[in-house]
C-alpha cells in the first residue's frame, strides 16, 4: 500500500482541519514542519465536512480547502461532504 500525503499551511484554520483529519483517520501521521503541516497515511486520507465544521463550530465548505492547501499526492475524490485522496496500489 502506497502512502498518500497532504500539506496544509500552518495556520488557525488548518488546525481545525488537521484535528478533523486525525479524528477520522486514526492511523494518519502528522508532521509539523516550518510553516507547514504535512499529514501522511497509508492508502488513503479523508477530510469530512461534518467533522471540520464540528471542530470549527461553523459550516465549512469543502472547496475552501484550496485556501490553505499546499500540496498533495494521490487520486482525488471530492464531493459536497468530503475530500478524499487515495492510491489504488
Amino acid at each position: 500500500m502506497s502512502r498518500v500525503q497532504i500539506g496544509l499551511q500552518d495556520n488557525d484554520e488548518s488546525r481545525y482541519i488537521v484535528a478533523a483529519i486525525e479524528e477520522d483517520n486514526p492511523t494518519a501521521i502528522v508532521h509539523y514542519e516550518p510553516a507547514l503541516i504535512r499529514i501522511e497515511n497509508e492508502g488513503h486520507l479523508q477530510i469530512n465536512r461534518e467533522s471540520v465544521s464540528e471542530q470549527m463550530g461553523m459550516d465549512w465548505d469543502v472547496q475552501s480547502i484550496h485556501v490553505n492547501l499546499v500540496t498533495l499526492t494521490g487520486n482525488i475524490d471530492e464531493d459536497d461532504d468530503y475530500f478524499r485522496i487515495e492510491w489504488a496500489n
Binding site: 500539506g7 499551511q9 510553516a35 507547514l36 484550496h66 485556501v67 490553505n68 492547501l69 499546499v70 500540496t71 498533495l72
Partner: peptide, 10 residues
C-alpha cells in the same frame, strides 16, 4: 511560496 503552492495543488 505557499500561496502559489495552493494553486500548485490544483
Amino acid at each position: 511560496g505557499f500561496s502559489a503552492q495552493s494553486d500548485e495543488a490544483r
